Simulated assay, not measured.
Amino acid sequence: MIYFDNAATTQPYAEVLHTYQEVATKIFGNPSSLHNLGSKSTRILEASRKQIAELLGKTADEIFFTSGGTESDNWAIKGVAFEKARYGKHIIVSDIEHPAVKESAKWLSTQGFEVSFAPVDEKGFVDLEKLAELLRSDTTLVSVMAVNNEIGSIQPIQKISELLADKPTISFHVDAVQAIGKIPVSDFLTERVDLASFSGHKFHAVRGVGFLYKKAGKKLAPLLTGGGQEKDLRSTTENVAGIASMAKALRLTLDKEEVANIKIAKMRQIIREELLKHGDITVFSGNENFAPNILAFGIKGVRGEVVVHAFEEHEIYISTTSACSSKSGKAAGTLISMGVPTPSAQTAVRISLDDDNDMSQVEQFLTVFRQIYEKTKKVR
Rank of each mutant, 00 (worst) to 15 (best):
A24N: 11
T70C: 11
R370N: 15
V306I: 08
S72C: 08
R234G: 04
T25W: 04
L131F: 04
I318D: 08
Q346V: 01
F28A: 15
I372M: 12
A179P: 10
Y373H: 05
T59Y: 02
T225L: 15
G69L: 01
H309S: 13
I77F: 02
L276N: 13
I270D: 08
A247L: 04
Q269N: 15
D194I: 04
S137F: 09
A296F: 03
T342L: 15
E274C: 02
F198W: 06
K377M: 06
V185Q: 11
G301H: 05
F290Y: 15
G301N: 11
K215T: 06
L163E: 02
T342H: 13
K248G: 07
S94K: 03
K202E: 07
G200I: 01
F125L: 10
S360R: 11
S116D: 04
E129C: 09
W107M: 14
G112H: 01
E46P: 10
S41D: 03
V144R: 01
S104E: 06
R192S: 05
A345M: 04
N239Q: 05
S337R: 07
T282V: 08
I170Q: 03
F211I: 04
E122R: 13
I77S: 02
L254Q: 00
Q21N: 13
I372V: 06
G226K: 08
S328Q: 13
M246N: 03
R251H: 13
I170P: 00
S109L: 08
V115A: 05
T334C: 14
G217L: 07
I2M: 08
S109P: 11
Y373S: 03
L220N: 00
I372S: 12
L252K: 08
G29N: 06
T342R: 14
N74T: 08
N74A: 14
Q21H: 12
F28T: 12
D166G: 09
F284N: 00
R86L: 14
K327N: 13
F113C: 08
G301T: 01
S32M: 15
T169L: 13
L131T: 01
S322M: 13
I92K: 05
L335S: 03
R370K: 15
T10P: 03
S245Q: 11
A85F: 10
A53Q: 02
G279C: 09
I27F: 12
I27H: 07
V240L: 10
L34P: 15
I180W: 07
T190I: 00
K277W: 00
A76S: 14
Q158Y: 12
G242D: 07
A221M: 12
D280F: 10
S137H: 09
A247W: 01
K50Y: 01
F4E: 03
K102E: 14
L108F: 02
S245Y: 09
V147H: 08
V174C: 11
I336Y: 13
L135S: 07
T367R: 14
T19R: 09
G339H: 05
A47M: 07
I294T: 05
L254H: 02
S94W: 04
P156R: 02
K50V: 07
T25Q: 07
N74H: 12
V283K: 01
E133D: 14
E150M: 06
S104R: 08
T190W: 12
K40R: 13
F172S: 05
D175N: 05
Y13C: 07
E71Y: 04
I77W: 00
H278W: 06
L163P: 03
